[in-house]
């Protein structure tokens, strides 16, 4: 299981899978000031990213994986806007 939640920190290990979404959500809900350690994360599925974006936990470490860090860091550091542009009529 690559997402390991202890008292206040959820540690993401290597390839994380969507199955972690429920335990992670539980962790984010139940923990007062949740922290997330992404240092050893090498793959982050959208469902987990969505949780992180929503709950905005304190990220104690960004991934060492440069490619992942490259896109993840700005994403997690900037506030997510609510969608303002209407979907193009098709």
């Amino acid at each position: 299981m690559p997402v390991i939640c202890n008292k206040s920190t959820a540690r993401f290990e290597e390839v994380c899978s969507i199955e972690e979404a429920l335990p992670l959500l539980e962790f984010l809900k139940m923990t007062k000031a949740p922290k997330v350690d992404l240092r050893h994360c090498s793959y982050l599925p959208t469902a987990l990213l969505q949780l992180l974006l929503l709950a905005r936990p304190h990220i104690t470490a960004y991934p060492e994986d440069a490619k992942l860090a490259g896109w993840l860091t700005p994403m997690l550091q900037n506030r997510l806007e609510r969608d303002c542009v209407p979907i193009a009529a098709s």
Binding site: I18, L25, K29, Q50, L51, L53, L54, L80, R82, D83
Partner: peptide
């Protein structure tokens, strides 16, 4: 460049279904 946005008003954490995608 990649940009993420909430598709609708994001659901509060307490009512969230983590298996629904809310992103655009």
């Amino acid at each position: 460049a990649v940009k993420l946005a909430w598709h609708n008003h994001p659901v509060p954490l307490a009512e969230l279904d983590p298996f629904r995608c809310q992103l655009r």
